[in-house]
């Protein structure tokens, strides 16, 4: 068997890192030989249900031991260093709560367990952060799903952590709360915090994350900026929308090129499928110039995260 390759980064300095990490339950593999590093900013952990997202987050948070390989938080495995939780936060996916506590009591408990110097102030700040002042003095048992989710997030953030691991953080929130939380996380990311959050809702990830980790069936299918990922998928035709001064003329020219797989005249434009991203953009300029057609607009149409994701998941 070949030696596991060295990771292309230094895991001892990355805020979050996995090095050939795997986790299996009996003969079910939940996470399969995953290597990555996550830096400051928001990173979306994307994958269909059952892809191993929660297992990966729980391993990073020190709640599960990797079956092989290593997961590191600031260069240390969290499992052996509870002190790391002074800077790390986890909001678990599971909808668990101390129903008999009020939201404020839960935040205060979290602040005290985090050994903060002024727990009352920290709890107040956390409650305000997630916009829960109104219901803060009612028992959590009577909360709606969205309120429980917000209190959970507020308590997780009570110690102003450097590293945030959030498992499906927007589950059960209404669109307005979702927007509020996204703005909050975006602001925290701008302050240089490391935020890794899982979701299977593409729109959330697209709006919030600069980077993505895509998991499919326990394996890391892709990592990085999703537009860059898309360009790496050379076996998939790229689609573009073109608006020109003479759609028909340029369509006829383009069809003679090998790099162009198909052209379709649609309402008010031209849909083109091309084999390669870079070569097509150079090609289209040359073709337009030689045909004397003016280019008004050239826009890639499947650079959305959704198309990237569907390609990766469909294999």
């Amino acid at each position: 068997m070949a030696e596991p390759s060295r990771p292309p980064f230094d895991p001892s300095t990355a805020p979050l890192a996995a090095v050939h990490a795997a986790r299996w339950y009996g003969n079910v593999v939940a996470v399969n030989d995953v290597t990555f590093a996550v830096g400051p900013g928001v990173t979306g952990l994307l994958g269909p249900n059952g892809a191993g997202k929660s297992t990966l987050l729980n391993m990073l948070a020190g709640l599960l031991a990797p079956s092989s390989g290593a997961v590191l938080v600031e260069g240390q495995p969290a499992r052996e260093h509870p002190a790391i939780y002074r800077h790390v936060a986890l909001a678990p996916e599971r909808d668990a709560a101390y129903g008999f506590l009020t939201g404020r009591e839960f935040a205060l408990l979290s602040a005290r367990l985090a050994r903060l110097p002024d727990p009352e102030a920290a709890a107040r700040r956390a409650i305000a952060l997630v916009d829960m002042e109104e219901a803060a003095d009612r028992p959590i048992a009577g909360y709606s799903k969205g309120m429980r989710q917000r209190v959970k997030l507020g308590a997780a953030l009570v110690h102003d952590p450097r590293i945030l691991l959030l498992d499906e953080p927007f589950n059960g929130m209404d669109p307005r709360q979702r927007l509020h939380m996204m703005t909050l996380l975006d602001g925290m990311a701008r302050e240089g915090r490391v935020i890794l959050f899982s979701s299977h809702i593409l729109e959330e990830v697209e709006r919030l994350a600069q980077q993505v980790l895509v998991m499919v069936a326990g394996r890391l299918a892709a990592a990085g900026d999703y537009r860059a990922i898309r360009r790496l998928m050379t076996d998939r035709p790229h689609t573009f929308t073109l608006r020109t001064s003479d759609d028909r003329a340029i369509a006829a020219r383009l069809l003679t090129e090998d790099a162009v797989l198909g052209v379709q005249i649609a309402n008010g434009g031209l849909d083109v499928r091309a084999a390669d991203y870079g070569s097509f953009t150079r090609l289209v300029a040359r073709v337009a110039a030689s045909a004397g057609v003016s280019l008004y607009e050239l826009r890639p149409t499947d650079e959305t995260l959704e198309s990237v994701f569907s390609y990766l998941v469909a294999g």
Binding site: A61, P82, A83, Y85, L90, A96, S110, L113, A156
Partner: peptide, 15 residues
């Protein structure tokens, strides 16, 4: 059973 143990474990508290 309820899953709340996580809230104690992710804190810097000696086990």
């Amino acid at each position: 059973e309820d899953g709340t143990i996580v809230y104690l474990l992710v804190r810097p508290v000696p086990r």
